[in-house]
Design a protein around this nucleic acid. Structure first.
Lengths: 196, 196
DNA sequence: GACAGATTAGGGCGATCGTCCTAGCAATTT
DNA sequence: AAATTGCTAGGACGATCGCCCTAATCTGTC
């Protein structure tokens, strides 16, 4: 009775819901869709999650855990904060196929929840905050000081913009070009030639 | 019987649908919602539009017309192409309230239609293309030559990124800062200090 | 004022939504 | 072997969806 079976099923539901919420949107993806993927009955759903919002909360939690693990991984693999930031920029390349098909998982969720005026929209925004604060720390380590928060937001902004247009235009060359420009921008921040 | 009545009602429907699709999303906004705003019966809807997709098509058409008129207006008011581009950038300020509440009308629609894999997603993308080509023409006039298409897409990308984060974080100061940075970027393109 | 066409109101269609209930199967404990 | 608990299957609920049909009303012409 160690409840390991339920935990496993619950995990499967969260993973499936995560994927479906991303690919179809939170509102469009239904209980029936999720149940079909997990291969459980719709009725059984209620045992694990009382409401759809509860599923969404679990999905956001799951995404937070995944992103935190990814950021930790980058910190372990890269000594240089600049290279860590480059890892972030490079998501646009490594996740290009998904982004072109469905946009940025974080941005599109926040946008949808804002339109639905959903209770959990601030929780979803926490995914952005996670990246913003992590990037900020890297810029602090790089000696950007008080500029660090603005630089972090600027980079986040560019990745969102690229994801949005990549999704609309399906233009891989555009993505490559903008990623290159972001690398360039990063270098300029580290060895400033008196901008402004 | 000059059908002026029907045209007027049809126009009201399109305007109401435009607003609701923007504020709630295409999928969430229902016939009943639109009919309530226009103050007609749900049944009457069918006389003007056979399907919801037909309403969407009309809304996209309507948005295209509005944007084209706006761009024409800018061209009349501003002789200098640089000032025209600044007008574009300044949308983020003039439309700030709506953007913070519901995101960019063009970007969020394209994103949603992509997730729904909707037939009209390429038509919606035409709204982006309209801006991209218009910006490109301004950059050509400014003597940017072959760079013009890339510069246009870059600017479009930044406006999308700013709109997305403005929507999520409700940070007016961030918007102001990024708009300023876009003005700066524009100036740099016009008097290049050997970048790259 | 009768007629014809344009426009409207209202309700019904089947499908699907999130939610909820309950009977039964599966697995572990005593 | 019996009993307790964990977990599941299946269906029913009211509401709402896009869509469709038809009868009534309005408007302008002869």
């Amino acid at each position: 009775m160690c409840a390991v079976k339920a935990d496993e099923t619950r995990r499967k539901i969260v993973v499936a819901a995560d994927k479906l919420f991303y690919e179809q949107g939170f509102d469009t993806a239904s209980f029936a869709d999720i149940a079909r993927v997990v291969e459980i009955s719709r009725g059984n759903f209620y045992y694990h999650f009382k409401t759809k919002d509860a599923v969404l909360a679990a999905v956001i939690e799951h995404r937070l855990d995944e992103r935190k693990a990814m950021l930790r991984h980058w910190e372990q693999e890269e000594d240089n904060p600049a290279n860590r930031v480059k890892r972030f920029i490079n998501i646009l390349i490594t996740n290009q196929t998904n982004i072109m098909a469905f946009g940025c998982p974080v941005g599109t969720l926040c946008t949808e929840l804002a339109k639905l005026d959903h209770t959990l929209k601030s929780e979803a925004a926490g995914l952005f905050t996670l990246f913003a604060e992590w990037l900020e720390r890297q810029f602090v380590e790089l000696g950007c000081g008080g500029q660090a928060p603005d630089l972090a937001m600027h980079l986040l902004m560019r990745s969102q913009g690229v994801a949005s247009l990549a999704n609309t235009f399906q233009d891989a060359e555009f993505v490559r070009r903008e990623v290159e420009a972001m690398y360039q921008w990063l270098d300029n921040q580290l060895s400033p030639k008196r901008p402004t």
